[in-house]
Design a protein around this nucleic acid. Sequence first.
DNA 1: GTCAAACTTGACAGTGCTGTCAAGGATGCG
DNA 2: CGCATCCTTGACAGCACTGTCAAGTTTGAC
Lengths: 191, 191
Amino acid sequence: MAGVKQFNEEEALGRALDLFWARGYRATSMLDLAEATGVQRGSLYNAYGDKEEIFLIVLQRYSEAYLARVSAAFSGDDVAAALTRYLDACIAIMMAGDPPRGCMTTKTATDTALNGERVHIALKGFLDEVEKAIAGYLATPVFAARLALPPAEAARLLVTFTRGMAVLERVYQDEKRLHESARSLVKALVR
Amino acid sequence: MAGVKQFNEEEALGRALDLFWARGYRATSMLDLAEATGVQRGSLYNAYGDKEEIFLIVLQRYSEAYLARVSAAFSGDDVAAALTRYLDACIAIMMAGDPPRGCMTTKTATDTALNGERVHIALKGFLDEVEKAIAGYLATPVFAARLALPPAEAARLLVTFTRGMAVLERVYQDEKRLHESARSLVKALVR
DNA sequence: GTCAAACTTGACAGTGCTGTCAAGGATGCG
DNA sequence: CGCATCCTTGACAGCACTGTCAAGTTTGAC
């Protein structure tokens, strides 16, 4: 039972993501991770050093998947439809799981901010990327023409708003309510 | 040193509020509260039962102060100015302290949601009240006439957006950025 | 003055988490 | 085959927090 890595790293990191997602960074202990992945605590320390390192790896995967969904939403030439698709995707991401797991980055961001400098920087990087991606899509002339705001402002507003939805999801756990708010935002944003 | 309550309850609860505000519900321990208030841990258990009880009392005070600021913002007959005052007040509340303490209810709401059933219900009640109050002010004809959305929708959107600002405050700690986003929202919301 | 009630204090047991380490076993290279 | 290397495992020390409690002290009512 030793000599070479005994566990499937892909699978273990996937399970670690699920756990961080469900509980947030701080509320997840190494023991939790060990149980969820089936890998002994000592092995995790040996392989990754500490919880922060595991989280950073896992956030990278999360980020890639998230950006892919953002990209998928901004297709076609109807801004309102694209924005609605994007916001609905955000809602779907948060409402997945039983109980719904919410938004991993929002949970972590509000986890007293000082979770560790590197985690904080990684979160900032994630939001920067999302905002930049959205701003890029919205700058398409066919989209920009119908927006009530310049693309960059609209992108920032959307990022802020989706974080707000993540908070309200935690409080109300009411998917319908989130969709309604999302539609309101689209109405206000599209001329 | 006994027989009758030795500590100033007003002052102790005020300090408890400061601590919950700075750290969030979960990250604040009874020991922290004891140190901050100068009241022994045992005395706190004796007087209030447990942390949840203290938090509920303290949230009530917070809520009253918050609603008073909301009310103050919605004066005059210029919607854009009123909304800007409200959002600026939210920002001011979050940026106070050194380091800035952020938004207490947002921190607590995202603290893994299951902080305790009563805390959860109290948070819901707080947001309901804020939304209701804003919707009431926005329903004033002079305000409603210039909104891009019905008052109820606008109120819900504002609540969601301010929660989002609370998250971004944690991530970027950039007051200017928050004011800019706030101005964007006002632009989108006022016709 | 007496006494029950109320408050304070320090201590204790129990739990859970972290980070480290030594011992032991498997592996693959030379 | 021999051996250094790498991984696993269980254990340990240390720390922080919770909730409870008994003992002691003060108070106010009678």
